[in-house]
Design a protein around this nucleic acid. Structure first.
Lengths: 194, 194
DNA sequence: AAAATGGCTTGATATAGATCAATAATTCTA
DNA sequence: TAGAATTATTGATCTATATCAAGCCATTTT
């Protein structure tokens, strides 16, 4: 299980973490298993963890006044899932996080990750690069949502995250893109004839 | 001029940087002055710098096929402006960055900031917190753009960045929100009667 | 001071996408 | 494997917002 995290650290830091340094990390994480539809976080509570996905898939979403779900982010293998705003500022979360598939996670808390970042340079670097990449990806998504049509949004999703398109139901993809499932269905149909 | 940066570092790291440590930083930055409408970055070129705004205001935007501008971000006093994707991956930028007002900047390059982060713990911490905050803010903006109506988007902007609303022309605010200037004008009119 | 420019408002119309509703396909699950 | 639940499609409207167009301020420029 932990080798997945180790793999990830090596990949995104472009390094090879030593057994010794990785040992520090192991202690900071606890395994957690969720069945499909089980919750990791409920709206209103503080997000006290960051979770690394070993396998399975998760989503982070908000439910508005009309009961519509808006998916803020997906997570799959070797991604992190958390409400970073709530986690960092210890404020109540506006989001729910639940499992789209049966999922295995490595969970760590704020304190643990902070001391880990102090004791392990590679964990620190990893955290840094994670944030940097997250921001870059999020800003691109902002651009897509403010400037693209429904069709362009879907094409952009296929280009950036084809895995999502294969793996998640269309209603969730629509929610992630900020369009209705009906519109997504029509967009896909019209793309077939092109 | 540099005291503005010093101020910022102390503020966001919740520390007081020593004269000694700040000296390291000074060398990494060059002053730059831009008049209103002057460019800092043109679409197609690699963004080789990060710039800290001393005073004035900047914007980062993309121009689409139809000639419409889409503002990805604004920057004002004590904000950074850069295309982080291009900066980090050395890829050609999709964006323009220009001055909305006469602006003074402290400019630093990739190499300089990297070595600065190695030699100064507080600069490192600052960079880290900047990325973290940028991601959190960007993710909130994603939520707003995928789930809010035009009116809600504007209200959200007034809540999160009232300064922008006071300072920038409505057509730019509209572009930032992903709506037309006409719609923003009507939204504001309707809000007055509430 | 006239002219030009840029920004804002307002009205008329068009349209992309939402909503509502029904059916069909798929996949859980007991 | 039948029945239930979930997901996807399709059609008929509706509506929020875009588009097009004109006029009006307020600045800036000459």
């Amino acid at each position: 299980m932990l080798h997945s995290l180790r793999n990830y650290i090596n990949r995104i830091t472009s390094s090879t973490i030593s057994d010794e340094e990785f040992k520090y990390g192991e202690a900071a994480f606890k395994m957690k298993t969720l069945k499909k539809k089980q919750f990791l976080l409920h709206e209103g509570s503080v997000c006290k963890f960051m979770s690394f996905i070993i396998n399975g898939a998760m989503r982070q979403y908000h439910i508005d006044d009309k009961g519509n779900e808006h998916i803020i982010s997906f997570g799959i293998e070797e991604w992190w899932i958390s409400d970073r705003g709530s986690f960092t500022n210890l404020t109540p979360s506006r989001y729910n996080i639940d499992a789209i598939e049966d999922t295995n996670l490595l969970v760590t808390t704020r304190d643990e990750i902070n001391s880990l970042k102090e004791s392990s340079p590679l964990f620190l670097k990893m955290a840094h690069i994670l944030d940097e990449n997250s921001f870059i990806a999020s800003q691109k998504r902002v651009e897509a949502t403010i400037s693209y049509t429904a069709e362009e949004k879907f094409i952009y999703l296929m280009e950036t995250n084809p895995v999502f398109v294969k793996r998640f139901p269309q209603n969730m993809l629509a929610s992630y893109l900020g369009i209705t499932p009906e519109t997504l269905s029509r967009v896909r149909k019209s793309l077939l004839g092109k």
